[in-house]
């Protein structure tokens, strides 16, 4: 199916999330909007603390109680931000699954991995324990974890193997959407490559849509169909992977790509702004080499002329 014909299955509209802290209000997500289409991988990329994970947690209502959330998250025709905990429990795992960044911390250290992978089948589908463990074993086999792996404990596995267990647990109910939150963070190069290959296998075999949240641009380039670039709580540019990597339109995207090894690690001047006292207007303008007077005003997210559907190109910059 060509990307422009894919149907959106998740719509995030003007999502804003703020937290009240003793130092002031932290605006972690600022009018974030995007569509996730069926059978596609959308990478939400940005640096640590830019609000990527807050967006993922908002979708699944996993934010702490002091979070104030505005906007809409439309799934199956309903705004799931208004869903109660019972409905969300049903959606989490069975329809929208999440792979967290630290597999060793996300798994229960005193329960065998086979039991942990089987648990969603027992809870959501009511499948008896013996049968569900057998299904979990088949699933682990497909993930390349063969032999007695199902009766082993997480501490007996490497970080990469535990990440595969996490992926198997997320996938066992065949969810429509998988949210992978920094699946390679903290892993060394070889393990990160393993995890990327697992994520690619999932994308190819399951048909689920993948929302990949990462600061790893190489991974985003290897795995995604589309990329959304976040800076200081806002999406500043969104488009197809090739457009973003080969022809960045927002000065921040261009500057971030220049930090890659193949571009010679060219640093971006200045440092990321505080989310409490973020700059007025364009949030990148104090660090931008191309800034001009108008950048003191807040730029809108605009669709570039001649682009539409899943290949739509959006940029939040007065230069466009």
């Amino acid at each position: 199916m060509s990307s422009s014909k894919k149907r959106p299955i998740l719509g995030v509209d003007e999502l804003s999330v703020s937290f009240q802290t003793s130092l002031g209000e932290v605006l972690a997500a600022d009018e974030v909007s995007f569509r996730l289409h069926e059978d596609e991988t959308l990478a939400l990329v940005g640096e640590t603390g830019c609000g990527k994970s807050v967006v993922a947690s908002s979708i699944l209502q996993l934010l702490p109680k002091n979070a104030e959330v505005h906007g809409q998250v439309v799934f199956e025709g309903r705004d799931i931000l208004r869903s109660d905990e019972r409905e969300m429990s049903h959606i989490r795992g069975s329809k929208i699954a999440v792979i967290f960044q630290n597999p060793s911390m996300s798994l229960n250290p005193i329960i065998r991995v086979g039991e942990q992978v089987a648990e969603p089948l027992q809870v959501h589908r009511g499948i008896p324990r013996h049968r569900s463990v057998q299904m979990a074993l088949d699933h682990l086999n497909r993930m390349g974890l063969r032999g007695d792996t199902a009766i082993m404990y997480p501490f007996q596995f490497s970080g990469g193997m535990n990440q595969r267990v996490m992926i198997a647990t997320s996938m066992i109910l065949s969810p429509q959407i998988i949210i992978a939150d920094e699946p390679t963070k903290g892993l060394d190069d070889a393990l990160a490559r393993d995890v990327v290959s697992e994520v690619m296998k999932i994308r190819d075999s399951s048909g689920a849509a993948l929302l990949l949240i990462t600061h790893d641009l190489q991974m985003a380039r290897d795995v995604s169909d589309r990329v959304a670039v976040m800076y200081c709580g806002q999406i500043v540019e969104m488009g197809s992977r090739d457009d973003i990597f080969e022809n960045p339109q927002h000065p921040y995207t261009a500057a971030l790509l220049n930090c890659l090894p193949e571009k010679g690690f060219q640093p971006i001047p200045g440092s990321s702004p505080s989310m409490i006292h973020s700059p007025d207007g364009c949030k990148f303008h104090p660090r931008c080499q191309k800034r001009f007077e108008r950048c003191r005003l807040r730029p809108p997210m605009e669709v570039l002329a001649g682009t539409k559907g899943a290949s739509e190109r959006q940029v939040r910059c007065w230069l466009r």
């Binding site: 640096e47 640590t48 600061h215 641009l217 500057a255 971030l256 220049n258 930090c259 890659l260 690690f265 060219q266 640093p267 971006i268 440092s271 990321s272």
Partner: peptide
Amino acid sequence: LDLSVQAQMLS
């Protein structure tokens, strides 16, 4: 460190 901070640090 993040990519941009890594580039700053190396420089």
